[in-house]
Design a protein around this nucleic acid. Structure first.
Lengths: 210, 210
DNA sequence: GTTTAAATTAAACGTTTGTTTAACTTTGCT
DNA sequence: AGCAAAGTTAAACAAACGTTTAATTTAAAC
């Protein structure tokens, strides 16, 4: 069901990048076809329509996200705070590794009229919450975490901070002292800074320690 | 320069809402004309083009944001933490009162190719940072705030958490126990919850107290 | 080697897009 | 009242859109 050939994957990858950069309606199938170096008709031939191409992008990345979540369920030996730290780091890595898709999600979740894609996004966030909440509540019951924590809001802060960091990158790269770094260095710098900030934040609010 | 008649304001308001709901490219000038109950040609007549209509929306709200920022500079008698609290509350109120515009900003800041609008957005964020940073550093010098705080990241968390809350509303309203509230009640509930969460977060990270 | 299906193409399809035109109406001023 | 400017309209414009067609090439199976 999810095995695409090279040409199909090329179309999906290019579409993902352009949708992220210019938005779904801001990207034409001709743009995609040209950058992917395929005939326009191939997009309809393989995916049926532009809408279904977006759906294909989502199906591909969503499956990866599902696998990502299921992988996080493990690691029961860790202390609660270590679990949270692990969750933060893995989440940051995931975000930085699929920025284009995260961009599309940021855009699509703003659409007011409900769509299958919008539903999928919030379903995924719900699963992330379902992963984080028991860690927190269990630690609360054990007297390790503070009890006055709004887990949904904490999740919103995690998502929001990371999503907000994505567009901020372009500004940092051009306007500041980080211009001398290459892409890999900058990405690593950003990863570390985000990680430190979020861990500090979560530790403070969850454990009341520093 | 910024005095629009009723019809122009109607067009701007409708355009702002539709751009927020469906995106700039997802909204046609015919949609706008129809919902604003004006002839299509009036949009070009008044604003020149669809692009310049978006610019008009931005100019209008940006000016309000500038005024908002300048207003925040006052209140020098407050304690540092109270200043931060005030900033958080005013910021939340602003966000909730102009959700459509904030939606457009969320979308536009994702566009990779630079534009006058994208520049304006980050300029505005820079001004917000310039407002928050001295409060924090002064309090740090006075020994009131902790010194290991990443102010840019804290700003990102503030923006990100609130921006992330906007799309989350539609989900909450339809899927949860808050369906019985009317719009005003729900808005107030959300305002309070956001406020509590962010104040707790900022107090913990800035003062190491609870 | 022939046959059948899949892949690929250039061209054309009918809409919808943003914008402009030209005619007409209203408004405000002397 | 008469006139000029501003406002308003339906219609038309070319360009771009997503999609389809029909013809051709490539690949696979027998």
């Amino acid at each position: 069901m999810e095995d695409y050939n090279d040409k199909q994957l090329s179309i999906i990858t290019v579409a993902e990048r352009l949708f992220a950069e210019k938005g779904f309606h801001g990207t034409s199938v001709r743009d995609i076809a040209q950058e992917a170096d395929v005939n326009i008709a191939m997009i309809s031939y393989y995916f049926g329509s532009k809408d279904k191409l977006l759906e294909a992008v989502f199906r591909l990345r969503m499956n990866a996200s599902r696998a990502f979540i299921n992988e996080l369920v493990q690691n029961d030996t860790m202390a609660p705070l270590e679990k949270i730290y692990s969750l933060i780091d893995r989440f940051i890595n995931k975000m930085l590794n699929e920025q284009n898709f995260q961009c599309i999600m940021s855009r699509e979740q703003l659409n007011k009229e409900q769509s299958p894609i919008r539903d999928l996004i919030w379903q995924l966030k719900g699963e992330m919450l379902g992963l984080m909440r028991p860690i927190v509540t269990n630690a609360q019951d054990a007297g390790i975490f503070a009890t006055d924590v709004d887990v949904e809001m904490l999740m919103t802060t995690l998502f929001g901070t990371i999503h907000q960091t994505i567009p901020a990158q372009h500004l940092l790269r051009t306007n500041t002292a980080y211009a001398h770094m290459n892409d890999q260095e900058f990405k690593e710098y950003l990863r570390l800074r985000l990680s430190n900030h979020l861990k500090k934040l979560f530790k403070a609010i969850l454990t009341h320690e520093f």
